[in-house]
Computed example of a mutant assay.
Amino acid sequence: MRIADLGDLKVHYRIDGNPDGRPVVFANSLGTDLRLWDQVLPLLPQGLKYIRYDKRGHGLTELTPAPYSMGTLVRDAERLMDHLAVKDALFVGLSIGGMIAQGLAVKRMDLVRAMVLSNTGARIGQPAMWDDRIAAVRAGGIEALADSIMERWFSAPFRKTDQFHAWRNMLVRQPAEGYMGCSAAISGTDFYTPTSGLRLPTLGIAGSDDGSTPPDLVRETVDLIPGSQFHLIRKAGHLPCVEQPEEYATVLTRFMQDVGHV
């Protein structure tokens, strides 16, 4: 178990693969921790340095009072990478992690040489929607929203599996304050203009059954960046790395090869 002391925040992270390899950094979705990538990592190329971390208020990373700003979450990723002396990484972000990826690429091009925007958008939802969710969590905890979240996260067949229940448990066991804090960060973010100025290799990944960030939103976002690629994973919702890890790993590996990261 590794903890990076960033002064005002202690961040839980994990490194797999070759500690001297080219870095790949993963950022998770709202309501999940770094275990989100457990099924994908063993299927990726050997010889790379795979870095995962729990964002502020999630997993084993320190909990701070809500609300958070996207700038704060981007700065957390930036400081972690500086702490680990990581540059020129391939940054893989899912949902809010994809927003962090966009913000980090705009701010620190020395840290990000290519990025994967998975199940995300330059803007996700509307402030009023997020205000309602935050109010519901404040009143009844994450459990109050869990069933509706699961419908957006996973396809109907996956929701009938035993594995599904573990992911529901992961969601409801995240700190409510961290969930509300990150929800506020998403609510206040509109990256359409800054993302349209990016010029770096980018892959968009969407799930056909994603009820949180539909394929059209992901495609619209990556289309802001000239030369970007897009891949649709069928029979998957908001977390295709969970429902279709083999296809996700294949697509990610191909992108790594295309950009010369392998």
Results as ranks from 00 to 15, higher is better:
residue 5 D to M: 03
residue 7 G to N: 12
residue 9 L to P: 00
residue 10 K to Y: 08
residue 12 H to F: 14
residue 13 Y to C: 13
residue 16 D to K: 11
residue 26 F to R: 00
residue 34 L to T: 00
residue 36 L to V: 11
residue 38 D to V: 12
residue 38 D to G: 05
residue 43 L to C: 03
residue 43 L to P: 01
residue 44 L to W: 02
residue 44 L to C: 07
residue 56 R to V: 07
residue 58 H to E: 12
residue 61 T to G: 14
residue 64 T to N: 12
residue 65 P to K: 08
residue 65 P to W: 02
residue 66 A to G: 01
residue 67 P to Q: 05
residue 68 Y to N: 03
residue 68 Y to A: 14
residue 72 T to N: 08
residue 74 V to I: 08
residue 78 E to M: 13
residue 91 F to K: 00
residue 99 M to A: 13
residue 99 M to K: 02
residue 100 I to F: 13
residue 107 K to P: 13
residue 110 D to V: 04
residue 113 R to V: 11
residue 116 V to S: 09
residue 120 T to D: 11
residue 120 T to K: 05
residue 127 P to L: 13
residue 129 M to R: 12
residue 130 W to I: 03
residue 131 D to A: 14
residue 133 R to M: 06
residue 134 I to A: 08
residue 135 A to I: 02
residue 137 V to E: 06
residue 140 G to W: 01
residue 141 G to Q: 05
residue 142 I to M: 14
residue 147 D to H: 02
residue 150 M to T: 04
residue 154 F to R: 04
residue 155 S to I: 00
residue 163 Q to R: 10
residue 163 Q to E: 15
residue 166 A to R: 10
residue 166 A to I: 08
residue 167 W to S: 04
residue 168 R to S: 14
residue 171 L to Y: 07
residue 173 R to F: 11
residue 175 P to H: 10
residue 177 E to L: 01
residue 178 G to L: 07
residue 178 G to S: 10
residue 178 G to W: 03
residue 180 M to V: 05
residue 185 A to C: 00
residue 191 F to N: 09
residue 191 F to L: 15
residue 195 T to D: 10
residue 198 L to G: 05
residue 202 T to I: 04
residue 203 L to D: 03
residue 204 G to Y: 03
residue 204 G to K: 05
residue 206 A to N: 04
residue 209 D to W: 00
residue 209 D to E: 12
residue 210 D to C: 10
residue 212 S to Y: 00
residue 216 D to I: 03
residue 217 L to C: 01
residue 218 V to W: 07
residue 218 V to K: 01
residue 219 R to H: 12
residue 220 E to D: 15
residue 220 E to A: 15
residue 221 T to E: 10
residue 222 V to E: 08
residue 225 I to S: 06
residue 226 P to I: 00
residue 228 S to A: 15
residue 229 Q to N: 09
residue 232 L to C: 01
residue 234 R to A: 13
residue 237 G to M: 07
residue 237 G to D: 00
residue 242 V to R: 00
residue 251 V to H: 10
residue 253 T to S: 15
residue 255 F to R: 02
residue 257 Q to I: 10
residue 258 D to S: 15
residue 262 V to K: 05
residue 262 V to I: 10
